[in-house]
Each structure stands twice: as C-alpha cells, then as structure tokens.
Design a protein around this nucleic acid. Structure first.
Length: 603
RNA sequence: GGGGCUGUAGCUCAGCCGGAUAGAGCGACGGUUUCCUAAACCGUAGGUCGUGGGUUCGAGUCCCGCCAGCCCCGCCA
C-alpha cells in the first residue's frame, strides 16, 4: 500500500499548506503530516499526527488544527476517492480509513501481479553482500550459522527488489596456518601433489588437528612450516598446488552445507586481494594517512582513543612488512567500490559478521572514507549480529563442551522434525510414503533453524532451542508452513485458486470482489502491507521485520480460515474468499522464499 | 582505563520517524471439532519498560549520570 500512502501524504501536505499557509512559509518546507500506519485496527488504516506539534507554534488547540486540516482534505476530491470521512481522535490525531472499493482495487491489482505489488528498482550499481566466510581447512560450525542465514536472506530481499547482488564468500584462505597445513600435507600425503586430480584428503578437521598438534610439539616442524609460509607467499608452484588442494577439499565440504541450506555464494577469499595489498598501503601513504609506529604501518583513527588517551591505530602493515586482515578488508572495500574493470563498481557494501567485529569495521570504514575510496552515494554497512547461545544463556556448546558442528546441528533439526512427524502420523492414524516423510522432515527442520534465527532481532544474542524452533504453534516455521498447507488443502478440496499453481497470475476485476466479514477485511489489510515491509527490510536490513509480518499474516489468515467458510460459501463470496486464499498463499510463499524457506503442499 | 552492544510479563522476544490504554508467542488457567488438516481458533491472568535525572504538548523510544551482563581495545580474523 505504499502507493496509497504516498498519495495520502501528498494530499495531506497540500491540505496543511492550504490550512496554514503562513506557518508553511515560516517553516520553509512543507509541514509534515506525520503519516503512519494506524497503531490499532479500530483507528482505521492510517493516522496523521502532524497536527500535534503545530499546537505551540500556531497557538491553537491541536484538535482545532486537525479540524482545519480535515476541512481542507474534504475539499480534495482525490482524497474523497481514497478515504472515508476522517476522524479526529484523542489529543488531535487524524484517523484515516480507506474506502472498501480502494482496498478491493488494491487486492485486484495484486492478484494480477507476480510481484504482488512490490516495485522493482531500476538498474542501479551492484550491492555486495559479504557473508558466511568460513575458514579453509576448518569445519563450518555454529558460529557461521547466523552470518550464512541472515546474509542469504538479505541477498534474497535485495535481489527480489531488482538489485544486482554479489554474494561474496570472503573465506579465510590465506594466512600463517597454511604453513603447517602444507608441511603436514607434503609429509603425510605427498602423492596428492603428484596426481592431476584433487585427491580426497579425508576428514580435514582431523587433518588440521594433526597438523596443529605437530606444530605445537615439534620444533623442526615449526620452522619448516614458517619456511613454507614464505614459499607460499613467494608463489612456489608446489606450495601453491598444496594450498589449492586444501582449498578445494574445504570447498567441497562447505558446499554440502550450502546445498542443504539452499544457499548460493560466490567464493572470493582473502587470497583474491593479495595483489592489491601493497597498493592499499601505498595509497594510504600517498594520502598522508600512514604513520610508522613501533615499526608498524598505522593509520590513527579519529574519535577513537586507546588506554593512554592517544588515538587508536589501525595497523595495515606489520613491523615485519607483512599485511594483516585490516589491509585485506581495506583492499576489498577499494576493489568492490572501484568502477569496472578495476573493481566491482558496487554502490552498497553489506558485511554480515558478528557484533564483536563492530569496532574493527568502524575503523576500517573510517580509513576507507578518509582515503577517498567511498565516493558519491556509496554506502558501507556492517550488519552485526549477536552470539548463538544455548538454553543456559552461555555460548552454545555440545555436552562434551566442544563447538557445535553446523552439520550436526542441521542433522538434529531434521531428526527431531522427523520423529515429531512420525508421532503425529501414528496419533492421527495417517499413513505416508517414506519419501514424503523425508521431504517434510527436511523442509521443516531446515525451515525451523532458519526461521528461529531470522525471527529474532539480529543485534541481540540469540538463544538456540530445538524445542522452541520446532514447536508447532507460536512464531515458528511450522506454524507458517501450516498456514500454506491449509490453503493448499482448500485447493485440493475443489477450490479453484486461479493462476497460482501455474505461476501465471490470473486477473480478477475489483468489481467481482465482494467482502462482508471483518475477518476478510483484516486479512486484506494485512496482505496489502507486503510492499512496505519489503522496503523496510531492504533499508534496515532486519529480517525479523519480515518474519513478524509473515507471522501476523498467518495468524490473521488462520482466524479467517477458522471463522469464515470458503468452499461452502455462496457466490460471489466464495470466489472472493478463494481469491484471498490465493493471495495469502502467494504472499506467504514469496515471503518465506525471501527468508530462504520453501513451502509444502501437505505436512 | 576507553569504546560498543544489551537490560521490556515467569520464559523467549517484538516495539518503525518520539504519538492514543506498552504488544506477541510459549508456559499457566478456562473454552471451541456434524464443516476446507484442531500443527488451529476464542477467552482469562500476568508490566515500577534496569535505575535516577533531563528535553517536550507527549518518552520503552532522544540526551546525561549510575547499576548489571556480554563483547572489543597494536602487529589473529
């Protein structure tokens, strides 16, 4: 309903201008009607709060001001076409209720629109979403869960809005740990370096542990490892081959997780930026930002002071001449913002990492700005998220105290979903194929993990609980999936939902729609909020706003389903209600799809 | 020591640009099934929005102080 809201805003501004020309002139800008969605259903669709702040400057009671605005609105025929008579309430709120014909027209427009009323942006600069970013040769664990799920969701929303999104996996594929890994590989599996094809190195985690154990105990191994790092950085072909093997092995293991979660990513690891690191330091030096301190190349940050009150440095070149993560992050920003062919030409950079890195990114962003790499309207945003905690409120661990592997976490979610389903099948005396059970359990399990993560505000820590996320009622994935299943049930029992199944939207004339029940109107009003919610997520990068909306929509739909018959209704109510069912299903499917959650026909 | 995030019902959490009597869910208690999947729906109870000031027509929301928890603070990412 963004279009309607915009029209109302314009009409309200004009009305205020007509009612208080001198105040408008004094303000220099049009008076703000403070149009907002109604805070409660009984207040209508929108409320304009703009009369209240005018009370003091105008020296009039706010209700009188509201009255003057309402009188001007009444003189505007365009307003009369959209809204019923405005109501002045409380201290001076103007409550606006849309005409039923207007709501029906909006519903009809969405029924004929595959995008459900969400506008598509015209081609703009690409958006980079940097997320997931596991470390090569290590296993993906619960620490990667949130970045991966939240990042994917934000990428989906931006893509749906029509942005050209670069989903970048900034994997940790460079660094000193490769010295020991390559040394170990050369000694344990030299044959892997001879054959042309990548050899299965088996369990990489065990391999990493072995290498680490040797590194900690064996001095000779340590020195060989250090030499190996130098060789690798110097471009030694054999070292590079070993490095490539390790990366390829890791890549395959990561891909298994990404496939299960249905996540698409372009790998562009830290190593990609190696050729650009020296240029970063050179550029900082040329711009007079680089300061040598204790032998390290630093940029001192403005507005951030350390223990002794001196500015805090961002180290971009170590005293041994090597570069570190700050250098890589700066190189990445520079490359991503630089126009092709020198870079990605992005207009917005989004970093989905844990909140603990906030200070690091603030520093890096500041240096990038001062270096002049952030030009024009380019935006760089850190999208922080809190820790995943266990039900005890502490960092999530296994019973043995180890880090939880992502694979195990996903397995358990699916297993629990499956046993829930089997128990219910027995209770309800239903019989289903094994393939059906497996499919439902997998879908529900993955959906539960994703939804639980996305539905909480990402900034706060997130308490992980299989029991809560898989609960069949409440703000959970199963509850939302069930709403979709109920609609599919109506279709199976003879309800023609129109083009939904074939994907081709079927046009419905607004005049053919006829609604009478409050539950229908409540559902309509909820359905029409989609475009505003998507716009909000695109701007604020908060997936939980979309989750809340889908949950509320499901609740409103379930009320409608429970209290208003569809198939047994007489025409034209029956067709009208079927149209609402179809739009509800399409909206839920679209919204869940943007969360990375596929829906089911039966469950 | 400096900086950041968090603190809202028994539990888990929403709360948009400051707007009307602070909302959900779970749990608790009570009810609803001749009818499209009851994985649902309806109702009841439950609050000093950590705390003390300030700003203003109006503060959970903005500003300052304090308390508590977590995180970060020179060559790891």
């Amino acid at each position: 309903m963004l279009r309607v809201a915009q029209a109302l805003d314009t009409q309200l501004r004009a009305a205020m201008q007509r009612a208080f020309p001198e105040a408008t002139a004094a303000a220099g800008t049009p008076l703000d009607p403070q149009l907002a969605p109604a805070s409660k259903p009984e207040f209508g669709d929108f409320q304009a709060n703009g009369a209240l702040p005018l009370a003091k400057p105008l020296g009039q009671p706010p209700r009188q001001i509201a009255q003057a605005i309402v009188e001007q609105l009444a003189a505007d025929p365009a307003f009369g076409e959209l809204c019923l008579e405005p109501v002045i309430a409380g201290p001076g709120f103007i409550n606006l209720t849309l005409r039923p014909e207007c709501l029906c027209a909006e519903v009809a427009a969405r029924l004929g629109d595959a995008r459900l009323g969400v506008p598509s942006v015209s081609a703009a600069a690409p958006v980079v979403v940097d997320f997931s970013s596991p470390n090569i040769a290590k296993e993906m664990h619960v620490g990667h869960l949130r970045s991966t799920i939240i990042g994917d969701c934000l990428a989906r929303v931006l893509e749906f809005r029509g942005h050209d999104v670069l989903r970048l996996n900034h994997v940790g594929d460079w660094g000193t740990q490769f010295g020991m890994l390559i040394t170990h590989l050369k000694q344990v599996a030299p044959e892997a370096l001879q054959t042309a094809d990548a050899v299965d190195l088996g369990d990489l985690v065990t391999f990493y542990r072995q290498a680490k154990a040797r590194f900690d105990e064996d001095e000779a191994f340590q020195s060989t490892s250090r030499e190996e790092v130098v060789k690798l950085q110097g471009g030694d072909p054999l070292s590079l081959k070993a490095w490539g093997l390790l990366c390829e092995q890791s890549r395959r293991e990561f891909q298994r997780i990404y496939d299960r979660l249905d996540i698409r990513l372009s790998e562009r690891g830290e190593s990609f930026y190696n050729p650009y690191l020296q240029g970063v330091v050179d550029d900082l030096k040329a711009r007079g930002l680089l300061v040598l301190d204790d032998g390290a190349g630093c940029v001192f940050l403005e507005g951030v002071s350390g223990k002794d009150g001196k500015p805090l440095p961002l180290i971009v070149q170590k005293s041994d001449g090597g570069f570190n993560y700050a250098t890589t992050d700066l190189a990445a920003i520079r490359y991503r913002l630089a126009l092709p062919p020198a870079g990605d030409g992005a207009g917005r950079l989004i970093y989905v990492t844990d909140a603990g890195q906030a200070a690091h990114f603030a520093g890096v962003f500041q240096v990038a700005r001062r270096a002049g790499w952030v030009t024009g309207a380019a935006r760089i945003e850190h999208v922080p998220f809190g820790l995943v905690q266990g039900e005890d409120g502490k960092k999530l661990k296994t019973r043995a105290g180890d880090t939880v592997r992502l694979k195990d976490l996903l397995d358990e979610a699916v297993e629990r979903a499956e046993s829930d389903l089997r128990r219910r099948l027995v209770e309800e005396d239903r019989s289903e194929e094994e393939a059906f059970i497996a499919h439902v359990a997998t879908t529900v399990g993955m959906a539960a993990v994703k939804y639980a993560d996305l539905s909480t505000n990402r900034v706060t820590n997130y308490q992980f609980s299989f029991d809560r996320m898989l609960a069949l009622s409440g703000n959970t994935a199963p509850y939302l999936l069930y709403a979709v299943v109920r609609i599919a049930g109506i279709a199976r029992k003879g309800g023609d939902l129109g083009g939904g199944a074939t994907g081709a939207p079927e046009r419905v004339e607004a005049q053919a729609l006829s609604f009478s029940e409050p539950q229908e109107w409540a559902l309509i009003r909820e359905l029409l909020k989609l475009d505003a919610v998507i716009a909000e997520v695109e701007e604020e990068l908060l997936p939980n706003r979309l989750c809340s909306y889908l949950f509320e929509l499901s609740q409103v739909f379930n009320r409608f389903y429970d209290q208003v018959p569809v198939l047994k209704a007489d025409e034209p109510a029956r067709s009208s209600r079927l149209a609402l069912c179809r739009l509800s299903a399409d909206t839920l499917k679209l919204g869940l799809g943007l969360l990375g959650i596929p829906t089911l026909e039966r469950m």
